[in-house]
Amino acid sequence: MTRDKAMEIMKDEEMKHFNWYDDHDIKPNEVGIRERANKWNVYTSDERANPISEKEFQSESEALENFIKRLRAINKFNNNYK
């Protein structure tokens, strides 16, 4: 997956609750992706805005696939409890 494809999915599915490459400080209950030293990390944050269940990837494509998978899950959960 590419960044453009991930952005297209996020827009088409009207996704919220994400941190796209550290574009803001970590907020509670969001999914984030970041790049550091040619490795990509995907995480989910808890209610105190602490990154949890962080996973490191060697390729950006794999990281983006995991990011979208997690983001779909958190958005589905949040939409069910509005």
Results as ranks from 00 to 15, higher is better:
H24R: 13
E65L: 07
F18L: 04
K39C: 08
E65M: 08
E30M: 04
N66Y: 08
P28A: 10
I74P: 03
A37L: 14
E8V: 04
K5M: 13
N29C: 06
L71P: 05
K27P: 01
K76P: 00
R70W: 10
F67Y: 11
T44H: 10
D25S: 12
T2C: 04
I74K: 07
E54V: 14
P51M: 05
I52M: 13
Y21R: 08
N79G: 06
I52D: 07
S59Q: 11
W20A: 03
F77Y: 15
N80G: 12
K39E: 12
E47Q: 13
W20Y: 12
H24G: 05
K82T: 10
K5V: 11
E65W: 01
N29A: 03
T2V: 03
A73Y: 10
T2K: 08
K55Y: 08
N79H: 11
W40P: 00
K16M: 12
N41G: 09
A6D: 02
K11P: 00
K39F: 09
R3I: 06
K82M: 09
L64W: 01
R48D: 14
E14K: 15
G32N: 02
Y43W: 15
F77T: 11
A63G: 07
M7I: 10
S45Y: 01
R70E: 09
N66C: 13
H24T: 06
I9S: 05
D23Q: 07
K39Y: 06
E62Y: 04
N41F: 14
I9C: 04
E54C: 13
Q58N: 15
A63F: 00
N78W: 09
N78D: 11
L64K: 00
D22P: 02
D25F: 08
N19V: 04
N38I: 02
L71M: 08
K16Q: 15
K82F: 09
Y21G: 05
M10Y: 04
Y81S: 12
D23G: 04
N75K: 09
A6Y: 02
K82Y: 10
L64A: 03
G32F: 01
R34S: 11
V31Y: 00
V42G: 02
T44Y: 08
I26Q: 03
E62N: 12
I26C: 06
V31I: 10
K11G: 03
K55L: 11
D22V: 09
N29G: 03
E14T: 05
V42I: 07
A63D: 02
N80T: 10
S45C: 04
